[in-house]
Amino acid sequence: MIKANLQLDAKGLACPMPIVKTKKAITDLEEGQVLEVQATDKGSKADLAAWASSVGHQYLGTVEEGDVFYHYIRKGSSEPEVEKTFEHTVSLNEIESRDGLILDVREEAEYAFGHIEGAKSIPLGELESRLEELNKEQEIYVVCRTGKRSDMAAQILAKNGFTKVYNVLPGMTEWNGKLTKEV
């Protein structure tokens, strides 16, 4: 089961209802949160992916179980691009050859649909309460989708006494290597 902030039951509904319901449901979410849309309409997969990209949300992927499609969409952000301030950075193509932990701070659903092999998942929102899972002696390479959330995560780690922390830039959007899925 993939973690989502909200589930929408659109099973049994025909086009265009899954889209209309999704549009309404996503207004209840905050930016960055994940919506699960359950649908049986076979066209919903292509429709939701196209809809998400046209209105600025992030389509993560779909899991099929029997006749039901579980679609995952992360609510897009209208925030302007903020400057990344964490000074220790490392480029994406270097991290495979380095020792240490790759920490993926995207939402669990984003991680599930594709992450770097061996990466550990702790979503940014949970990081402060899960610091004990991390080792201060180890190099930690923090990665997200575009480098924005990982920048914030790296700052949180530094504030909590982690010294061997690097923000990985640019982020998973540019990752061309192998992807591990958990769906």
């Binding site: 086009c15 265009p16 889209i19 209309v20 549009k23 809809w51 046209s54 209105v55």
Partner: peptide, 11 residues
């Protein structure tokens, strides 16, 4: 109405 509602739902 299908095209209209789909377009409206796409903002």
């Amino acid at each position: 109405f299908n095209i209209a509602t789909a377009a409206a739902a796409s903002e």
